[in-house]
């Protein structure tokens, strides 16, 4: 657009525009307060933040806190090394597993449920599998407790009745089992929802494609391979980019609530989010600089991965890119 037309456009701010502006004003204010102000709060990561008693946040930030350069990022080394390594390994590792399983399993299930002959059965099971999506991690945490409680849990009582030794599920000895439990719980909670997303896309595929394929003698597998999967590509890629952009975030409730925040299991569930939360609320002397540095890394790295993933997708297949 040339400068001239731009200028003319700007100068003609009509009554219509004014009304639309006022209509959207509350939302704009919301965005500034709850999205953009916290972004500026990220400067804490580069400051030696000290709260001035009786003064506001901004005053504390600008007048009471000296710049500290990259000092705060020493948090990466301030803890013992295994904590830092665990934190990044868990955050990224679980996410990679979740991303892969989160595409493969729901897509497979969606294709399978679409083939089931009884529509009624498909509908009922779909509804049942959607249920976990509507439950909070707090509630799921109690479900898990009902099975894994050391004294009364169904699992330990069953082990006992077969003459085995019960396992203290919420203590260090059970650490090898927890990655599997966490992966299972994640899939349990998200499987139905994702399946429905993919199923909705499958239902939208033009049936004549399948009819043409059948007339050419294509088998079920060939139809899936050459029609269904290519048609699902865009939605799969969109879900993938969204997930990759969140690779430095974690589903906090899953890691914090279902493990009951047990300190002897920390190595298994400590992610960046858990680290930030624990250092803020379960640490008697929180070091705000460190916490903010961790948050800063999380935000910036997440943003970079998302943009990179999208750029790669755009080069491979422009149609499927998210932005």
């Amino acid at each position: 657009m040339s400068v001239q037309t731009k200028k003319r456009k700007k100068s003609r701010f009509t009554l219509d525009d004014l009304q639309l502006f006022f209509l959207s004003l509350p939302t704009v204010v919301w965005y500034i307060l709850f999205c953009y102000l916290p972004m500026f709060g990220l400067v804490i990561a580069f400051k030696k933040y000290k709260v001035a008693p009786g003064k506001g946040f901004l005053w504390s930030l600008f007048n009471n806190s000296a710049w500290s350069g990259l000092d705060n990022f020493r948090f990466l080394f301030a803890n013992n090394k295994t904590t830092t390594i665990n934190m990044f390994r868990n955050t990224i590792g679980y996410n990679i597993i979740f991303i892969i399983l989160g595409v493969v399993i729901p897509v497979t299930l969606a294709i399978m449920i679409n083939h089931i002959r009884s529509q009624k059965l498909a509908k009922v099971t779909q509804t049942a599998m959607f249920l976990p999506h509507f439950l909070s991690w707090v509630v799921v945490g109690y479900f898990v407790f009902a099975f894994l409680s050391t004294d009364n849990g169904l699992v330990n009582r069953t082990i006992l009745s077969f003459g085995g030794t019960p396992i203290k599920w919420y203590q260090g000895e059970a650490a090898p089992y927890w990655p599997w439990i966490l992966i299972f719980l994640h899939m349990w909670k998200t499987m139905g929802y994702s399946m429905v997303v993919y199923l909705a896309s499958i239902k939208g595929i033009d049936e004549s494609l399948y009819e043409a394929a059948m007339i050419d003698g294509a088998t079920k597998w060939q139809q899936t391979r050459y029609i269904t999967l290519p048609m699902l590509k865009t939605i799969m890629i969109i879900m993938f980019i969204m997930a990759v952009g969140k690779i430095f975030n974690s589903d906090f409730g899953l890691f914090y609530r279902t493990t009951r925040n047990s300190s002897s299991l920390t190595s298994v569930y400590l992610t960046l989010d858990v680290y930030v939360y624990n250092s803020m609320f379960n640490n008697p002397r929180p070091v705000y600089g460190y916490i903010s540095a961790a948050g800063f890394l999380q935000s910036v790295l997440g943003c970079i991965t998302m943009v990179v993933a999208n750029t790669i997708v755009r080069h491979v297949d422009n149609e499927s890119a998210l932005f």
Binding site: K9, K10, R12, F13, T14, D16, D17, L20, F21, S24, V28, Y31, L33, F34, C35, Y36, L37, P38, M39, F40, G41, L42, I44, F57, G245, D273, V276, Y277, M280, Y288, I291, S292, A294, G295, F296, Q298, S299, V300, G302, C303, M306, V307, F323
Partner: peptide, 27 residues
């Protein structure tokens, strides 16, 4: 709408970037 482009950016940025828990909490 004249501000449409600006608003699109305004709502897009929070989708890929956020202030993190601590600064949100402090604000």
């Amino acid at each position: 709408f004249k501000l449409r482009g600006f608003y699109t950016t305004l709502i897009f940025i929070p989708m890929i970037f956020n202030g993190g828990l601590l600064s949100t909490y402090v604000v």
